[in-house]
């Protein structure tokens, strides 16, 4: 079997993260569960946000989990891809907007 840093099976082991430090893990999972429950935003809307963020942070586990979850909650393929584009646009914009800092610096030192 190939040796990867990321293994698909490891996603299923997430709940065992408390093995080394249970109190903090319990708090995390309780908070996590509450975050994704129905609230002012629906669980369905939160799932799509999670999918976009998963792409922004480029977490393969999160992408796996929330691609399935968002599709299961009724978002179609085009909607999922639009969410990914939103994440990508923010990431791209976040890089590009630093160009202003670059310009400021260059202007400050240029004759």
């Amino acid at each position: 079997m190939a040796n990867h840093y990321y293994s698909e099976e490891d996603l299923g082991k997430f709940s065992s993260i408390g093995t080394f430090q249970k109190p903090l893990a319990d708090k995390f999972f309780a908070w996590y569960g509450e975050v994704f429950a129905e609230g002012q935003l629906s669980a369905r809307e939160k799932s799509l946000i999670a999918l976009a963020v998963a792409h922004a942070v480029q977490c393969p586990y999160c992408i796996d989990a929330y691609s399935a979850d968002a599709f299961e909650k009724g978002w179609n393929e085009a909607q999922l891809m639009e969410a990914v584009h939103v994440a990508s646009a923010i990431k791209g914009g976040a890089a590009l907007v630093h160009g202003v800092q670059m310009m400021n610096k260059v202007k400050a030192i240029a004759m």
Partner: peptide, 17 residues
Amino acid sequence: NPAGAFLPPGQAALEQE
């Protein structure tokens, strides 16, 4: 019923949708 290899989401929220 799900159109694929997954479980149904919550019934109450789905009914509203």
